[in-house]
């Protein structure tokens, strides 16, 4: 047996040990990284859950604030304004001056309009309002309120046989639609806003389309709070929200909510 034959088993053994070591190291590495990855994903999931919980609480607080404002408007401001209206009406009988009478009548009309607007606002802020009148009627009221400004033409299309999704879900949908309309009016200055409710047996599809300025969906600035609120509400609904917008070409918002009933 030559020296080369003596060294061969050593080479084979060394290679086997080195290969075994490197393979074990790679496997150990992969297992560790998988654990680490799972940990990162879990951390992200918890962070998201916490964020969602926080936003959900914020929205609940907001909803409470809306309710409080609605009650305040209804119980105090509207009551007061109603009394003023009655007073003005009674004053009319004691006044002989026609010019002053006309002025008071005009003021009374304006006050009546303000009372109506405030009542509408009070209704739309009240979280039991949607449950009382139903989603479609609530949206119609919102639309009539926007149309009364005569600056933007707003329309509602309902397809399919409508059904009740439950008070909580309908309120969330209503708030998303309100947010979408508010965003469009605030940033897009559209000529028209079209809302479509498509009732299918298994799901409700909602489309809100405007012909306003649109925006770059990749850029989310501080105004993105409204969009965030919409996303959170959509998550709370277990729904799918898709916002498509191109600068100067309007915005389309799609919401899909499953019918669990």
């Amino acid at each position: 047996m030559g020296p080369q034959n003596n060294i061969l088993p050593i080479i084979l053994l060394s290679t086997s040990i080195l290969f075994l070591f490197s393979t074990s190291l790679v496997l150990f590495f992969v297992v560790q990284k998988r654990k680490q990855y799972k940990h990162v994903i879990e951390k992200e999931r918890l962070e998201n859950a916490f964020k969602n919980q926080l936003l959900q609480t914020e929205l609940e607080v907001q909803e409470q604030a809306f309710k409080y404002m609605s009650e305040e408007i209804h119980d105090n401001i509207l009551q007061g304004m109603g009394s003023i209206k009655l007073q003005l009406h009674s004053i009319l009988y004691d006044i002989r001056d026609e010019d002053l009478k006309n002025k008071i009548t005009d003021s009374n009309d304006l006050l009546g309009k303000a009372i109506n607007n405030l009542r509408n606002l009070s209704h739309s802020l009240n979280n039991s309002y949607v449950a009382n009148v139903g989603l479609i009627e609530a949206i119609e009221k919102e639309i009539s309120y926007i149309n009364s400004t005569k600056q933007t033409k707003c329309s509602l299309r309902v397809k399919g046989n409508d059904y009740n999704l439950g008070a909580e879900k309908e309120l969330l949908i209503f708030r998303i639609i309100q947010e979408a309309i508010s965003n469009a009016l605030k940033h897009g200055k559209p000529r028209s806003i079209d809302i479509a409710l498509i009732y299918r047996p298994e799901k409700l599809n909602i489309k809100i389309k405007d012909d306003g300025a649109g925006f770059d969906t990749s850029i989310r600035n501080s105004d993105g709070i409204g969009l965030n609120n919409m996303s959170v509400r959509a998550k709370m609904l277990n729904g799918k929200l898709d916002i498509q917008s191109v600068k100067n070409s309007g915005t389309s918002i799609y919401l899909e909510v499953a019918n669990d009933k």
Binding site: I11, S14, F21, S22, V26
Partner: peptide, 10 residues
Amino acid sequence: FLFWSLSYFY
């Protein structure tokens, strides 16, 4: 890593 650990001694 695997290449060099296999061929290093050879």
